[in-house]
Design a protein around this nucleic acid. Structure first.
Lengths: 255, 255
DNA sequence: CAGTGGTCTAGACCACATT
DNA sequence: ATGTGGTCTAGACCACTGT
């Protein structure tokens, strides 16, 4: 089932603008079609005929979807469902750099463990899955310049990644979110983080070669899809003597 | 000198689109005019005549400036230079909430000290002012629910805030950034932050009623204007047993 | 009511990428 | 050469705001 096979009914007298109706129709199609990253959508002229509106209205609708990060327009080529390319994805959600450095470098990553467990109460609540259903627990060490500074614990639902194996994880050629995207069609688009300062326990101290009770960051991240479906819980423990968490913020957002 | 008195020359054959030229011209005018927040800009029809282009082109230029957070359009009223209203500004750059709470509450603030010093080497470098020129050092305690969790150290250049006094600071009716905006026409629009975990020293421990060497966050924030002029250095020391740093991030930004 | 920005039209021409 | 999105026009009409 392709978009071009569908028939669309736009209400020209609705209180919601036509461009917004069209945006929503397109969004729905892409969602039903599982939002395959990299997928080409019909060109503007085709959409004009499908929706029977003027090209400016189509452009406005696509423009909004582009601002939302769902579509990307490429002049001369067409409009595509957005996908993180192999370079950009690396740094989208990696917030660390060496002290005083403004530019992020790709971290080196080492898998510590990969296990399947029954979700405990807080995990099942956070992931919105039944208590006792299967989850993966994945631990990674991350470093810069050959030294390790970060321990990541990842918790994801088995049901959302049924065929995931340790080998797939270990042998991935790219970031973890890229793996989710390319192998499971699951697309993490926004994350919320909560940061605390805590004292390192024995396990973290050993993994990061730290004194016991060193001050470290504990970062709880929740990764969502477009539709705010919660996909991943990630907790990072970070030794920040040589590196720091960096972040930049503008005062304003679009409409 | 008002915008409408100026004469604009748009190069119709330039490689840069007309809407971008217009955006830049408008931006410049607003900048020269000191970007008075809340200021009304000429209506679209007037701009059409000033720039001698079609209204769609004007709208595109204004749309970009709106996306950048510089202008805000109000249907039926006009287009204005954006200003943080008294509510929104409160939470723009305040990143803390009580554990597990998703919504931020306004913190209570208490001035600890307000002094003038000579800028040391790192301050002068960071603020891009001569070493030894005057800076204000301002310390605040911030809390939630009547308990204090945060100590803020603010460093700003005396030259940028020549008439600032402790009384102005203490008697402000709004946020600090609002004070900068309303009394000094200085408009902080973006901030970069660097976060580390450290152990509390004696001074911070006393101020926050903490054990010595408790793990705390140290957050170095640099506040910039539109033009990336550095205005303020702020270092926050945060006790995070009851509160946490919260942040949300989308994968994508506009064009 | 008059004035503002918001939506929409039905094109034209340009810049870019692929074949 | 063909097809794509990007820019731009010159309007029309609607929805909202304050008087």
């Amino acid at each position: 089932m392709s978009i071009t096979d569908l028939k669309f009914e736009i209400d020209r007298n609705s209180k919601t603008p036509m461009w917004l109706q069209i945006r929503n129709e397109l969004f729905n199609c892409l969602y039903l079609d599982e939002l395959r990253p990299g997928q080409l959508i019909p060109n503007e002229k085709t959409l004009v005929e499908l929706f029977n509106v003027s090209i400016g209205t189509i452009r406005k609708a696509i423009g909004v979807l582009e601002k939302e990060g769902i579509l990307i327009r490429k002049q001369g080529l067409g409009t595509f469902v957005f996908q993180h390319d192999n370079n950009s994805f690396l740094f989208e959600y990696f917030h660390f750099a060496l002290n005083g450095s403004e530019e992020k470098k790709a971290p080196n990553v080492e898998l510590i463990s990969f296990t399947t467990k029954k979700a405990n109460k807080s995990e099942s609540k956070a992931l919105k899955i039944p208590e006792g259903s299967n989850v993966y627990h994945i631990y990674n060490k991350l470093g810069l310049n050959k030294k390790f500074y970060i321990v990541d614990k990842i918790v994801i639902s088995h049901d959302k990644f049924p065929s995931l194996t340790e080998e797939m994880f270990r042998n991935r050629t790219n970031t973890i979110y890229n793996l989710y995207q390319n192998k499971f069609n699951i697309f993490i688009t926004n994350c919320s983080e909560k940061i605390k300062a805590i004292s390192s326990n024995e396990r973290i101290s050993n993994l990061l070669n730290l004194e016991l009770n060193s001050p470290i960051l504990k970062i709880d991240r929740i990764g969502h899809t477009y539709h705010n479906e919660i996909i991943e819980l990630r907790t990072s423990y970070v030794h920040t003597s040589d590196i720091e968490y960096i972040q930049s913020q503008n005062s304003m957002f679009g409409e």
